[in-house]
Amino acid sequence: MEVVVVSTPEEAARVAADAYSVLLRDTPSAVLGFATGSTPLPLYRELIRRHREEGLSFARARAFLLDEYVGLPAGHPERYREFIRGELEQHVDFAADAIVGPGDLDVAPLDAGPAYEQRIRAAGGIDLQILGIGSDGHLAFNMPMSSLASRTRLKTLTPRTRQDNARFFDGDIDQVPTHCLTQGLATILDSRHAIMLGFGRGKAQAVREAVEGPLSSRWPASVLQLHPHATVVVDDDAASQLAFAEYYRTTYAGKPAGQGL
């Protein structure tokens, strides 16, 4: 695991976007993994800028989403598929139907997990997966105590999670779905390169536990310690509890030119 500490989310976005630029230059048909939520937004804005100003192309790429609510109709503004459409897809040059979410398959929710796993395998696996970390250490909808060996599956949302997400549903918890589909932690480990972003002091404990704590289902993001090519990119606030923050800064600053993430 490589840890990169930068000053701001915007600087983190540039660091992560460099990995996309290199991958898509070398492998235009790469398979990407996208996360939703506020954390990856600076990255998506930077990718849009590079597409418009530098010619970064997604025309031959494909992408898979980490998770999706169950029960929201197609086109609902809070579907994660709509989030990616509005925040990234419609601003760049993805081909039609190049992006797929676990709720897009024409199967029952209980069958969607295995079907999604098969779809990812058929695409050759995910080359670059972007992740955000929750303040409790969750990845996607893999909440604390999720199995480290989990695969894409149907999950029941806890009352706390539904209450936290009610702000997106006019503050009404009754509008928040009770179930979701999510890639599992083992699914995430299958990606060839995983980049986890974390910003703000509210993420500091989770980042510390994920990076320097023991491997534990209590902190699901700690599973990235097992990933053969994981990169954690955090701002100064999110890195504020890391015991080895200066070591991470020094080693990143001293990387040979052109090595990349």
Score class of each variant (00 low, 15 high):
Arg151Phe: 09
Thr152Glu: 01
Thr152Arg: 08
Lys155Val: 15
Thr156Glu: 14
Leu157Arg: 11
Leu157Phe: 14
Leu157Asn: 06
Thr158Pro: 10
Arg160Tyr: 12
Arg160Asn: 12
Arg160Cys: 08
Thr161Ile: 15
Thr161Ser: 15
Thr161Gly: 10
Arg162Met: 12
Arg162Asp: 11
Arg162His: 12
Gln163Trp: 11
Ala166Ser: 15
Ala166Ile: 08
Arg167Asn: 00
Phe168Asn: 13
Phe169Pro: 05
Phe169Arg: 11
Asp170Tyr: 13
Gly171Leu: 03
Gly171Glu: 03
Asp172Lys: 10
Ile173Asp: 12
Gln175Thr: 11
Gln175Pro: 02
Val176Gln: 12
Val176Glu: 09
Val176Ile: 11
Val176Pro: 04
Pro177Lys: 13
Pro177Gly: 12
Pro177Ser: 09
Thr178Asn: 07
Thr178Glu: 15
Thr178Ser: 15
Thr178His: 12
His179Gln: 15
Cys180Ile: 13
Cys180Asp: 04
Leu181Lys: 08
Leu181Gly: 05
Thr182Ile: 07
Gln183Phe: 00
Gln183Thr: 12
Gln183Asp: 06
Gln183Cys: 08
Gly184Val: 09
Gly184Arg: 13
Ala186Lys: 15
Ala186His: 15
Thr187Tyr: 10
Thr187Trp: 10
Thr187Met: 12
Ser191Phe: 04
Arg192Gly: 09
Ile195Thr: 10
Met196Pro: 00
Leu197Gly: 03
Gly198Arg: 14
Gly198Phe: 07
Gly198Glu: 06
Phe199Gly: 10
Phe199Lys: 10
Phe199Arg: 07
Gly200Phe: 10
Gly200Asn: 05
Gly200Ala: 08
Gly202Val: 07
Ala204Gly: 07
Ala204Asp: 02
Arg208Pro: 00
Val211Asn: 07
Val211Trp: 07
Val211His: 04
Val211Cys: 06
Glu212Gln: 11
Pro214Trp: 02
Leu215Lys: 08
Leu215Asn: 08
Ser216Pro: 09
Ser216Asp: 08
Ser217Cys: 04
Ser217His: 04
Arg218Val: 01
Arg218Ser: 03
Arg218Leu: 09
Trp219Phe: 08
Pro220Leu: 06
Pro220Arg: 09
Ala221Ser: 13
Ala221Ile: 04
Ser222Pro: 00
Val223Met: 02
Gln225Val: 01
Gln225Thr: 01
Leu226Lys: 15
His227Leu: 04
His227Gly: 01
Ala230His: 01
Ala230Asp: 04
Val232His: 08
Val233Cys: 00
Val234Phe: 06
Val234Thr: 05
Val234Leu: 02
Asp235Leu: 01
Asp235Pro: 03
Asp235Gly: 10
Asp235Asn: 07
Asp236Cys: 05
Asp236Tyr: 04
Asp236Leu: 10
Ala238Gly: 03
Ala238Phe: 04
Ala238Val: 05
Ala239Trp: 00
Ala239Glu: 00
Ser240His: 01
Ser240Thr: 02
Gln241Glu: 12
Gln241Cys: 03
Leu242Thr: 01
Phe244Val: 00
Phe244Thr: 01
Ala245Cys: 04
Ala245Phe: 02
Glu246Asn: 12
Tyr247Thr: 13
Tyr248Thr: 05
Thr250His: 12
Thr250Trp: 11
Tyr252Lys: 03
